[in-house]
Design a protein around this nucleic acid. Structure first.
Lengths: 338, 338
DNA sequence: TTCGGGAGCTATACCGGTTTATCAAACCCT
DNA sequence: AGGGTTTGATAAACCGGTATAGCTCCCGAA
């Protein structure tokens, strides 16, 4: 027999469909003996719930969604997403909940997807990444009443659940490390200013500058691309009093920056120290290998999944979980200034 | 009213549920006038099908799956998957079919996932990547009668549908290009021998060697990691009569190889030419930028999606689509031998 | 002895679509 | 005009589960 249904099991066990449903879902209504018997038969017949049937009856889909709104080309290079995804899945797999992934170009499309998913009842909740300042997705999700968890930034007044690491602290660690080496001219090649984490990092640099006696600590925003990372680096290094250290908001930009430095005859770490905010194989492949801020992205994803499941189970209680602090991995690209 | 159902539409239009269903699915059974009216009302009420209900009734889920069986750490760096995914989704979005993505550690788990997906009716079909020699997944899918399309390799005698590019031809192009530059000692740092495409590339090199008068053209297999790529390169360059050109089976390994060369004082492209099989931002970020074989990965994915939909619609007819040939992008890492 | 109440189970409605059997009216042809 | 086919629609079954009302025992308390 192909794909047994609970009706088949019921027949074989000599009980009603209802009893089988009770037994399989571990809820009261059947005796322990009957439950045992039903479970054994189900096992034996290799029964598996029909997801659609269950979804229709119980109005939960056992599936969560994740939309990534970035142009595809920036996406691939960053191990960030791959690790995050794996982590999310490991968090979901325990409950055998599946993940819908969608890559779109912009935030408007992303919101559209949420609307569609909601009206088609395709997901029980979603995971958000790349929170921007005054993020339109928050209100949209609120209105849709779709459970959600934000990765990498507190949910804001909207009070979405969130999982975050302390960007500010991480950035302070980097700057203090460089200052301790003796650097006073530190530049920050940041990402898009619309991302909240970019803002937090910029603020951290600005706040720390006077305390550490930094002469100048400009944060220059980019679109996260290697091209702008390179261009910004070129501009910085062409200045009369160029910085002796540059902090990049992503590994890709740091690598691009390293290339520019080499091309301009600026030796790393002799004339210039480089730190990447975000670690990956990329930073390790370079010569010199780049000093970088490492986060446990996998764990990040896992926790996000866990929190999302909590929120789905109990939408009233917003969870706000802080993950382990990022760690600075010192490699060959940093040294005291000449 | 929250989330209208077809019953609501039927009532408002003064027709039966059946009529509404016919109208919404564009099938005969209603007059053109009635159809128009129903469609307008549905539009107006912002009706969207309940995916579970549809799945239950029509026994199709409008969802396809893709499992990637690779350790997460190799995954992120390769833009390959990100582009592929975007492509797949663009191919699916036309029919508004969603994608389930799963990253697992090994092929056994992957097969388990297929079984689970099938018995839970979670997907209508799947997309396979990284075909190995005597791939166990083919038989498994055959047995499950789950529609599938293989990316990057002919489906084999199992006759799964497939979408592929000509690896052999691509490799020949590379080797011929290097030979034309004057290289006679060419080495090939390959990927895992269990992948079919690795085999095809190795065979291409071996076959071309005598014709092009290559002195030696060894193919050395690795696990695709940067570590083994580097180690293999080191071994090759330490030889008495070291190769004047190396072809790498992935961009990551090529970058690692470049690092080793620089470290050993072997200048690129002066003493050594480097070609990467697979292009990405990585190859462009290097100094010198790497000559690489570029495939239109996005299009690859899009076509895979299209073919899968065809196969789902008509499982009898296996499709075998060949995509555009990869193109060699010459950059700074190749030159005539010293 | 009767009644209340809980445990254990059945029967059945229900979720929101699709599909099929059925049917009335219109149309078509000699 | 009568019989056959086509068209446009309906009512009801169905998909595979979940949720619930209700029934039957059985036990203990009044």
């Amino acid at each position: 027999m192909a794909r047994p249904t609970i009706a088949d099991i019921a027949q074989r066990a000599g009980v009603s469909k209802g009893a089988v449903s009770f037994a399989l879902n571990g809820r009261p209504g059947v005796s322990e003996a009957t439950r045992e018997r039903i479970l054994r038969i189900a096992e034996q017949m290799a029964w598996r719930p029909h997801s659609a049937a269950r979804a229709l009856g119980a109005s939960r889909v056992d599936s969560v969604g994740m939309v990534i709104a970035r142009p595809a080309r920036t996406l691939g290079v960053e191990p960030f997403f791959a690790h995050l995804l794996s982590g999310v899945q490991s968090g979901l797999s325990a409950e055998s909940i599946s993940l819908q992934l969608l890559i779109v170009e912009d935030t408007e499309t992303e919101v559209e997807v949420y609307k569609r998913w909601t009206s088609e009842h395709r997901v029980d909740g979603v995971i958000l990444v790349d929170l921007t300042v005054r993020d339109p997705r928050i209100d949209a999700l609120k209105e849709l009443e779709l459970p959600a968890v934000v990765i990498g930034g507190r949910g804001g007044k909207g009070q979405l659940a969130s999982v975050w690491a302390d960007d500010r602290d991480a950035m302070l660690t980097i700057v203090e490390y460089l200052a301790a080496l003796g650097h006073r001219r530190i530049a920050h090649v940041a990402g898009t200013p619309i991302f909240q984490h970019t803002q937090r990092r910029i603020r951290a640099v600005r706040d720390a500058a006077p305390r550490l006696g930094l002469v100048d600590a400009p944060s220059l925003t980019t679109d996260f691309s290697d091209a702008e990372g390179a261009a910004t680096t070129r501009r910085l290094l062409a200045q009369a009093d160029r910085p002796t250290a540059i902090v990049y908001d992503s590994d890709v930009m740091a690598v691009a920056g390293l290339g520019v430095a080499m091309e301009m005859g600026v030796s790393v770490p002799g004339d210039l120290s480089i730190v990447a905010f975000d670690d990956s194989i990329l930073t390790q492949l370079m010569h010199p290998a780049l000093t970088a801020m490492s986060r446990d992205t996998f764990d990040f994803g896992r926790q996000a999944a866990e929190v999302l499941l909590e929120v789905i189970a109990n939408p009233e209680v917003p969870v706000n979980r802080r993950t382990a602090d990022p760690v600075l991995t010192v490699r060959e690209s940093t040294a005291p200034p000449a």
